[in-house]
Design a protein around this nucleic acid. Structure first.
Length: 278
DNA sequence: CGCGCCTCCTGTGTGC
DNA sequence: TGCACACAGGAGGCGC
C-alpha cells in the first residue's frame, strides 16, 4: 500500500502489534524480497533472529522497525507490498515472501508482495533514519518539515509541478493518487512549470497536499481492492472522497466538466480541464 | 548536475 | 475461449 496515509496506517498497526516483541525465527520465501539486503537471505535471517523490535517508524513511504541491537529492519511496500499480522495457523498467502516468528508464539509478521517491487533489509542508523534513506526528504506530516525550504526548492526546479511533488528528495510520501488530488484542490495543471509558481500558489499547493494526506489518513487510506490493506487485512475508505484520481469522464465536483485522463510518466494523470488549466 | 525515460514484476480487465 | 495489450498505488539507474 503505497502512499503516506496507507504506510502510516501500517506503521500504527506495527507499533501496536509488533513493537516490544522478540524475533525468534525468520523465513525468506522469495529472495527478491530482500534484494536490498546485499549479504543475502541467510545473513538477513541470522542477524534478525534474536533481536527485539522496539518501535515502528516512518518517513514518507518508508517504514522501519528499530531493533534492540541498534540497527533497524527497513521496509518499503513498493506497489503491492503488505505487512500483515497473522495467527500462526493462518494459511500462507499466495505471495508470502518473508515470515517472522516471535518468542511469545503470538501472531506472525508476514511480508506479502505480489509484484515484488517492495522489500526488507537490515540497516544501520544514520542519526534518526536508516542509512539508505538519508536522501529522502521529510514528509509534510513531519513536525520538522521545513515549509520555507520546500517552497524555495520547489520554485527553483525546472520541471512540471506534478513531477516535483512526486520527487521524494523534495517532499516525501506523495504518490500518484495524492499528487492528482492535491493538484485538483490547488487548481493546478500537472504540467504547470514549478519555476512560474507564485509564492501564494506554492503555499496553497503545500496546504492542499497536507490536507489531502491528513484526510486520507483519517479515513484509513485509499483502497480500490484487497491489495491495499492494514496489518489486519482491512481496507480504508478514502477512495469515496477522491475528486480526480480514477474518475475519468465523471463530472468535476467543482465545475461539472468531465475529468480527463492523460498519459504521464508511464502512468496516468487525472485532472479537470476547466479548473486546472495550463 | 538535473531531468526524464525505462525497467524491474505479477495480475486483472478489455477488446478483437 | 484465447490471445495480445494496456494498465496498476514506486523508485532506482542511466542516458542525455
Amino acid at each position: 500500500m503505497p502512499e503516506l496515509p496507507e504506510v502510516e496506517v501500517v506503521r500504527r498497526g506495527l507499533e501496536r502489534w509488533v513493537a516490544g516483541r522478540r524475533v525468534t525465527d525468520v523465513e525468506v520465501l522469495h529472495p527478491r524480497a530482500i534484494r536490498r539486503h546485499l549479504p543475502g537471505a541467510s545473513d538477513f535471517a541470522t542477524r534478525l533472529s534474536g533481536q527485539r523490535i522496539v518501535a515502528a517508524a516512518r518517513r514518507g513511504k518508508y517504514l522501519w522497525l528499530p531493533l534492540d541491537g541498534g540497527g533497524a529492519l527497513l521496509g518499503h511496500l513498493g506497489m503491492s507490498g503488505q505487512l500483515l499480522v497473522q495467527p500462526a495457523d493462518a494459511a500462507d498467502e499466495i505471495h508470502l515472501r518473508v515470515r517472522l516468528r516471535f518468542d511469545d508464539d503470538g501472531p506472525q509478521l508476514r511480508f506479502v508482495d505480489q509484484r515484488t517491487f517492495g522489500g526488507l533489509s537490515l540497516e544501520s542508523m544514520s542519526d534518526d533514519v536508516p542509512l539508505p534513506i538519508v536522501h529522502i526528504a521529510r514528509d509534510p506530516l513531519d513536525p520538522l518539515f521545513d515549509d520555507e525550504l520546500f517552497i524555495k526548492a520547489l520554485r527553483a526546479k525546472q520541471t512540471g509541478v506534478k513531477r516535483a511533488i512526486l520527487d521524494q528528495n523534495l517532499i516525501s510520501g506523495v504518490g500518484n493518487i495524492y499528487a492528482d488530488e492535491s493538484l485538483w484542490r490547488a487548481k493546478l495543471h500537472y504540467e504547470a512549470p514549478t519555476s512560474a509558481l507564485s509564492r501564494p500558489k506554492a503555499l496553497l499547493l503545500l496546504a492542499s497536499v497536507r490536507d489531502v494526506l491528513t484526510e486520507a489518513l483519517g479515513q484509513g487510506g485509499t483502497s480500490f481492492d484487497s491489495l491495499y490493506v492494514n496489518v489486519n487485512g482491512e481496507s480504508g475508505y478514502f477512495a469515496r472522497s477522491l475528486n480526480a484520481y480514477g474518475r475519468a469522464d465523471e463530472p468535476c465536483g467543482r465545475c461539472g466538466s468531465p475529468i480527463r485522463r492523460a498519459a504521464f510518466m508511464n502512468r496516468s494523470s487525472y485532472y479537470c480541464p476547466r479548473c486546472q488549466r495550463k
